[in-house]
Design a protein around this nucleic acid. Sequence first.
DNA 1: CATGTGACCAATATGTATTATGGTCACCAT
DNA 2: ATGGTGACCATAATACATATTGGTCACATG
Lengths: 205, 205
Amino acid sequence: MSKTVTNSVSARGPADHEVRDQIVVAATEHFSRYGYEKTTVSDLAKAIGFSKAYIYKFFESKQAIGEMICANCLRQIESEVRAAVDEADRPPEKLRRMFKAIVAASLRLFFQDRKLYEIAASAATERWQAALAYEERIRKLLQDILQEGRQTGDFERKTPLDETVMAIYLVMRPYLNPLLLQHSFDYTDEAPAQLSGLVLRSLSP
Amino acid sequence: MSKTVTNSVSARGPADHEVRDQIVVAATEHFSRYGYEKTTVSDLAKAIGFSKAYIYKFFESKQAIGEMICANCLRQIESEVRAAVDEADRPPEKLRRMFKAIVAASLRLFFQDRKLYEIAASAATERWQAALAYEERIRKLLQDILQEGRQTGDFERKTPLDETVMAIYLVMRPYLNPLLLQHSFDYTDEAPAQLSGLVLRSLSP
DNA sequence: CATGTGACCAATATGTATTATGGTCACCAT
DNA sequence: ATGGTGACCATAATACATATTGGTCACATG
């Protein structure tokens, strides 16, 4: 997995500390095995051999720990998507891959790491920083692809970039956002291709 | 409100019967005031002055009553959407109006008839006939607009019609389906215009 | 045959007493 | 300062006994 980044809002005490990492490791293990709700802060404390109170020297709440794990998880998805995009060299294909990778990665999280998925769903519902930041990074990635496509002449240039980004983001959202994805399983097979097709037609110069 | 249609699957006994209508009226009243869950079958029975058992001569379950009310409710939305579409005479504008009307009508249901909205959400979750039929009718309306647009030359004709219908339906779905709409409130202002724009660009010949 | 019901049952919902949990704090040790 | 904890509290989760509810059926009436 990608390097565990620990800086963040809602973190306390020494930013770079062995114990902080231990907490993150233990939390990742416990949350993904037993789920966020079923894991108590005491469980995590026990797992790393310290008292519960000590945990709170590093995180200001249980949710803050959840956010960290969730952030790692979303960063993981993001990097898969980026990797998929990088495999293509022309913007239209990049867009197709992006769509496909988003759906694939999100589905994988759902089916293979249900517990973590549930955290991501909470993050989306409750608008955690991690979720907002993830959305924003995906949006940026989309914007980069569109911008490149405009430069290469693959995409039209009349529509304001912001509008295009927004519209396509809205099209992708049901498959990006865990809350929406849950209700879109019936379409995950066809949606990436169909919607990529539609979007690319809308972008043709 | 549009005429209360009563024929359906999951209806029992005499199809056209005064008491059946009384039940529907009472259910509409109770469900929308107190909600589906909080209303008991006995409440409905009391309201129309019969015994609970008698209700079951007309409906095979409480859910069947819910489906009826929900179906009326969705038909109501559909007719608003159709009315909006009919106001425009050219297919592109029809499409814009359709999108706008769907969002407006669904939001109105949510904010002004929360209890009925919750039934519609259940209908979507549990795949009631009423919800499936509604989706199908909206899809058909969309298809008709697209077909007309192809004839008038407003829309491109290369992409297979089914694909176009499907893709645009997928774009609209987050605002059609009560379950998804709940998670899209942040975008209901801009989405209709932005997405209509994108869709129309994708349809340009 | 059509209209109508009270009594009844399994399953679900509800209220409540009890426990477990998230979170803090004063305090100890190095 | 840094590293670390047990005792404590308000609130949230749990468990369980009790009451409701959805649904059926045999039967009554005209």
